[in-house]
């Protein structure tokens, strides 16, 4: 790996100051399982000059529950999230999502903040420099997205305009379904933001001087059914081809509230608002579920090689609504 300067940060404030000092030439290391790959393969046009280790900040890896909800420190590892009895009891959706990430070894060091901020897995974007040079795609300031007329089997089927890479985070869609908010620290102090508003087509709203400090999840209704489904070719290791998270509350088969979020189908996580609206007040049946799935994917326009993702997404939504696996 090419050399960089390395700095340990010991508080959020210090991190923000360091980010300001290095003026966009620094990257945060919140776990490293994504970052180190990015650095080793030299995929970025500008190699960072400084790596700021934030794992050295004490107290950011806690899970605290009160009556209203739960606060998760940004450095909480995915393994700790999976092992937390509190999360298992009231926020099982997040546990399920975290449990599908990568492998046990990765989950022991990958953090929730890192998982939310990870870079896309698009294989054009990630093409390693050592075999003929990295690819300067639209996301890196190039003119076009090579996936559009290329090998786009894993790319976006909706919502993409210039870059067809998808957001790979499994925990993001779980948190959006749960209505979670982020505490973001920056030079002007902290701000809170729903996870739903965090992502943009080319990444996130996080600017180069900010970091996620914590995640807050309001306590969902105890009768709400939380479900997470992720379609991959293999259970471990793989990033989602399609993932879906939902919280559906129903009484004797009649749905009165639903939140459905899709991952890996678009550059950002996608709320299936039309499907959610449609389901309210409906008696759940296979037909209703299929119709909801259709509405969820109504905007989809697959590329040359990823129409199958649309079918899978519809199937997953349908199965979620029906409570099937």
């Amino acid at each position: 790996m090419k050399l960089f300067a390395h700095v340990n940060a010991y508080s959020v404030d210090e991190t923000i100051k360091l980010l300001a000092k290095y003026e966009g030439t620094a990257k945060l290391n919140a776990g490293g399982t994504d970052l180190l790959g990015v650095l080793k393969n030299r995929i970025l046009p500008n190699y960072p000059e400084v790596i700021i280790n934030i794992k050295s900040i004490p107290g950011l890896n806690t899970i605290e529950e009160d009556e209203e909800g739960i606060n998760i420190g940004t450095l909480t590892t995915l393994a700790d999230i999976i092992a937390s009895p509190v999360i298992e009891k009231n926020y099982s959706l997040l546990k399920e999502a975290a449990g599908t990430v990568a492998s046990p070894q990765i989950r022991n060091i990958a953090t929730i903040g890192g998982n939310l901020c990870q870079d896309t897995r698009c294989w054009y974007y990630r093409y390693p420099d050592e075999v003929g040079g990295m690819i300067k795609c639209f996301r890196k300031g190039g003119k076009t997205c090579p996936a559009v007329s290329g090998e786009n089997q894993y790319h976006a089927i909706m919502g993409a305009k210039k870059c067809f890479a998808v957001c790979p985070s499994d925990t993001a869609i779980a948190l959006i379904a749960l209505g979670a908010t982020l505490t973001i620290a920056g030079a002007e102090g902290t701000r809170t933001l729903p996870v739903e508003e965090f992502y943009t087509p080319l990444g996130s709203v996080l600017n180069s001087g900010e970091m996620i400090a914590a995640i807050y999840i309001p306590k969902p209704s105890s009768v709400a059914g939380q479900r997470f489904l992720k379609f991959t070719l293999r259970k471990p290791i793989d990033f989602a081809i399609v993932s879906v998270a939902s919280i559906i509350t129903h009484d004797q088969g009649v749905c009165f509230d639903a939140r459905i979020v899709l991952g890996a189908v678009a550059p950002t996580p996608v709320r299936a608002l039309k499907a959610e609206e449609f389901l309210k007040g409906k008696e759940l049946s296979e037909e209703i579920a299929a119709e909801a799935a259709g509405l969820a994917m109504a905007e989809a326009k697959p590329l040359s090689k990823n129409a199958y993702k649309l079918e899978i997404a519809k199937t997953l939504v349908k199965r979620l609504v029906m409570g099937l696996t």
Binding site: H6, N53, S56, Q105
Partner: peptide
């Protein structure tokens, strides 16, 4: 005591 991948950790950390 926990299994981790040592290629994904910086030695200085």
């Amino acid at each position: 005591g926990k299994a981790v991948q040592s290629c994904m950790l910086l030695t200085v950390e």
